[in-house]
């Protein structure tokens, strides 16, 4: 592997007496889609807090394109767990939020977002308020807001966690197609095993707190992927392996 886009070595974090991250090692290559799979409350979001600069790592090193990551500003485009759309902004104005913060003039920001609206299934909805959209559409606006920032890497925190099963599946298919097209470098947090297998090139499994990488697996399925690929023997074997790793790490009563 050439220089990874993102490389974490022994990254640890504790809040007072709570040991959240117990030394995380992981790499993401440029153009790679990597998922972090872990039980709820395992500190997956803490990892993103560290990467976005919302909190500092207690220990360890983070390298971005081989250089020490001192200032995360401008490197990552982050999509929070709930869509965090602003109810008072129309779809188009929510989408350009990141550009607006960067100081891109309004007209220019709209010009940059316009060609993507169609791909994101939002054409004709530019002037709608978020409350008028379905859950799936809201997530697409949130993802659009993330990618138009044109950062080197996407951080997606359980983007489809709040959606119903059917919408979630169709959003996963849609995201897979979008990724095929744009080849973003992405780090996805999820606790949905199928989602991780369907979307990722590689998957890390985290243990319960304090979180450590307990398993790493490459997903050798070809692209583009369809739902049918998930029933291939290779996919079901990976799913079983991931579940085993996850449940083995969970609290004893679940095992």
């Amino acid at each position: 592997m050439s220089t990874p886009r993102l490389s974490l070595r022994h990254v640890a974090k504790r809040f007072d007496t709570l040991d959240v991250l117990g030394g995380i090692n992981l790499d993401v290559a440029p153009g790679e889609f990597v998922s972090i799979l872990g039980p709820s409350g395992a500190g997956k979001s803490t990892l993103f807090q560290i990467l976005t600069g919302a909190t500092t790592p207690g220990a360890g090193t983070i390298a971005f394109d081989g250089a020490d990551l001192t200032d995360p500003a401008g490197k990552f485009a982050f999509m929070p767990q709930r869509d965090a759309l602003m109810p008072w902004r129309r779809v188009i104005d929510n989408a350009v939020l990141g550009l607006e913060v960067q100081g891109v003039p309004r007209r220019e920001a709209h010009r940059r977002v316009a060609p993507l609206l169609e791909q994101f299934g939002l054409a004709g909805f530019e002037q709608h308020y978020p409350s008028q959209l379905s859950g799936g559409m809201r997530q697409r606006v949130a993802l659009l807001r993330t990618v138009v920032q044109d950062r080197q890497m996407l951080l997606l925190d359980e983007p489809f966690g709040a959606l119903d099963a059917l919408t979630r599946t169709s959003m996963q298919q849609w995201l897979e197609r979008m990724w095929e097209r744009h080849r973003w470098t992405a780090l996805l947090i999820t606790h949905d095993v199928r989602e991780a297998v369907f979307l990722s090139d590689r998957i890390y499994v985290l243990s319960a707190r304090p979180a450590r990488v307990i398993h790493e697996i490459a997903v050798p399925l070809g692209r583009p992927r369809t739902l049918r690929d998930l029933s291939a023997p290779e996919a079901t074997r990976i799913e079983a392996e991931l579940l085993h790793a996850l449940l083995g790490s969970a609290s004893p009563e679940l095992a």
Binding site: G53, G74, A77, R82, A84, L97, V101, Q102
Partner: peptide
């Protein structure tokens, strides 16, 4: 103000004043 909204703005590089104007005030 939604904490995720503030976190999001911070991740975009927003200043304290921008967070106030774009999230806290509305």
């Amino acid at each position: 103000t939604d904490k995720d909204m503030e976190w999001l703005l911070r991740s975009m590089g927003a200043t304290r004043a921008q967070v106030f104007l774009k999230a806290r005030l509305p």
